[in-house]
Amino acid sequence: MSTRAHECLMRMYLEEHNLESYQGSIPRWCSGCGDNAILTAVQRLCRDEKLRPEKTVFVSGIGCSSRLPHYMKTYGFHGIHGRALPVAEGIRLARPDLNVFVTTGDGDCCSIGAAHWIHAIRYNMNMTVMLHDNQIYGLTKMQVSPTSPKGLRSKTTPRGAFLEPLNPLTVTLGIQNASFVAQAVDWIPELIYEILSRAFHHKGCSFVRIIQRCPEFLPELLDPWLHDPNRTLLLTHEKGLQVSASLSRVYKNQREHDPMDIDRAREIASAGDPIPVGILYHNPSVPRYEELHAIEPLRTPELIQRGLEAELDKFTIWPQEEAG
């Protein structure tokens, strides 16, 4: 073994991984904001997976939720509204060695970035996408979002939202190449962790919608679900989630669901209430764009020169002798 690789292993062994290793600046979300639960879950995940902070990138768009990368002590890319996914795709394509996470909001993903959402699912590049769905625009102070329930009073719909909400799960499950679709709720942190962990281990684009409370603007929106555990439906399966005994005592409404069954997954996603929590769909064999279309890892100057000269040959007019 070369010294370098040896040193590397030593360092990994010696390195301690604790939560602080992943904690960046102090979160500035409102108290009680569901984003905090999601942050804690990903920090735990990073610790438990011993992810090297320098090899991990959190990419986001713009919104309250998109502040998350700042609160991690990894690399982060807090870009522009709606465009987290294409940025993350570029990173993934360039660097197969990095762990790529994407944080996006319901406005970010399902409205301004909706085109990218559809195509990200279709590309199925290896990354973990967390949709923080608070059903409102938080950062810009309470405008209606595509996932807001019909009738919701917001600053731009003072007399109530006009349209039925878009369902991020049914949309995602309708896109060709969907390979991992799951749902979590911020009030069951244990399952955010479990689901994100499954998502992380899936090789492909894992899409996790996390229903997230915004106590600042919609303090009561999710109360009916919080007060009645039976309005949460846990999806369990030997290939999906296994739920702890303590959790099962509270959330008795459970159902076996085979995550390979896309038709059932679509049915469950459409029902909506009770809110399904768990892995709706998982297909590990969907091809990934970065495998089908990869940058050659060993791009030596010789390779480039050879390729270039071959192309120049096609267009070259060599000096010619005058015909006799």
Binding site: G90, I295, G307
Partner: peptide, 26 residues
């Protein structure tokens, strides 16, 4: 032939963001 790739993105915004992501990553 020289190890590079052309990515046809879903629109120009995505194309530019994709290029930025790749470039950011080195």
């Amino acid at each position: 032939n020289v190890g590079g790739i052309v990515h046809q993105a879903e629109d120009e915004i995505a194309a530019c963001a994709f290029a930025i992501g790749a470039s950011y990553a080195g």
